[in-house]
Design a protein around this nucleic acid. Structure first.
Lengths: 112, 112
DNA sequence: CAAATATATGCTTATATGGGAATATAAGTC
DNA sequence: GACTTATATTCCCATATAAGCATATATTTG
């Protein structure tokens, strides 16, 4: 077997810097494809392609407005990723550190 | 220009399912390469390769123990990703919804 | 040093993918 | 319908990459 199927998921979609830029832009409100392309200084086809990927994983929604296609962010599609990463929150969160410290103290007292 | 340099960053490292599995495993404690390979049912070379990527982005640390190399998780390297994603927390968080609602109410009162 | 165990690296193959350029499709205007 | 504007798609290229396999490089043991 040569390579695992690239099941394009949210993690993959978001691994691309330009797509993160699109997400940041759309978090401010819906934008047309050309707006996105101009603001992020990319060619229109690239914008369309990135938007296609984002749409496939449910990160953006589209609505037609005349000639234009207005894309908006569906940030809730990021939640699975958020849930995944918060599993490791204790590795950097101070309050988690304190919680662990507290639990350690409890354990020490238990042993007495 | 053909393709953007894949500046192998945390987002990329984590986009690979097998590497997320390694992260999950190491969050329980350090493991040797062979342990990782066996537990995650991958060949040893693949394990070594994934570990190399994870090490390059600072997500894991190694220490030698005789013949073995024990890998451990450095979860704090995930923080940049956490910081990024929490910018969009309001898109799924209830408490954020309530905060927004509250702010909207304040605004309405202001206008009166 | 030889043998065994643990890990890393190199090579090949198949596939994925981002960018560029050109073109197709869709919608609006006259 | 012809023309314009907006967006999507297709083709090509170059590179990235994951897996398989073989092999090289430790490290330990006898």
């Amino acid at each position: 077997m040569p390579r695992a199927p690239t099941t394009s998921d949210v993690f993959n979609a978001v691994a691309e810097p330009q797509r993160r830029a699109i997400i940041a832009l759309l978090s401010e409100g819906e934008r047309s494809v050309n707006q996105i392309a101009e603001l992020l200084e990319m060619n229109q086809p690239q914008a369309s392609k990135h938007l296609k990927v984002l749409k496939e994983v449910g990160l953006v929604a589209v609505r037609g407005d005349g000639q234009q296609r207005l894309y908006s962010l569906n940030g809730s599609a990021l939640k699975p990723m958020y849930d995944w990463i918060t599993k490791y929150e204790r590795f950097w969160s101070e309050s988690f550190d304190r919680l662990e410290e507290y639990l350690n103290q409890l354990q020490r007292k238990e042993k007495k």
